[in-house]
Each structure stands twice: as structure tokens, then as C-alpha cells.
Amino acid sequence: MISEAQLKRIAELARLQLTEGELALYPKQFSSILEYFEKIAKIPTEKVEPLVTPTDMVQTLRGDEVKPWEHHNESLANAPERSGNLFKVPPVV
């Protein structure tokens, strides 16, 4: 069973404020989900290289070139608050 303290620690790491409802709901759900996930522990995987992408591909790199980007106003238009060409954030005490 995941404790409330553990849950709060994960929420802190994930930068998520949880509602009262979620704090009440998650511990039991997480415990049953994690118990189900732990089935994989019994599969022998010694010396097996983890697979992080499913097809055989090679890393490709491109040149780091400067290119003009003319849509900065469209990007800035999405800002919750802006000041000229800058993103504005509230003061943090």
C-alpha cells in the first residue's frame, strides 16, 4: 500500500497539486495498479539490454544552423501574461 506521505512526495516530485478527492482516491488505486505491474518482476532479465525505441534505427544528427523564425508573435500570443517581447510571471515570494 502506498502511504499518504509517499503519495505527497511523488506529487511534489511531479510538481502536481492534488485535490482532496485525488489524495483520497489515489493510494488504493496505485496499490492495485502497482501490484499488477509487479508481475513483471518474475521474468528473468539478467544481461538483457533495455529496449527504449522499438525499431532498429541509428542516431542521426543534423547541423546546428541558425534559421529565421518569423512567428514569434504567434508564439508570444499564447503567453498567459506578456510584457513586450517577454513572458511575464508573477513575483514569487
Binding site: 532479465t45 538483457v48 533495455p50 529496449l51
Partner: peptide, 8 residues
């Protein structure tokens, strides 16, 4: 562990 089993 999940990534290892994924390879298998």
C-alpha cells in the same frame, strides 16, 4: 525492468 522485458 519494463524496458528489458520490452526487448524480450
Amino acid at each position: 525492468k519494463a524496458c528489458q522485458v520490452r526487448r524480450l
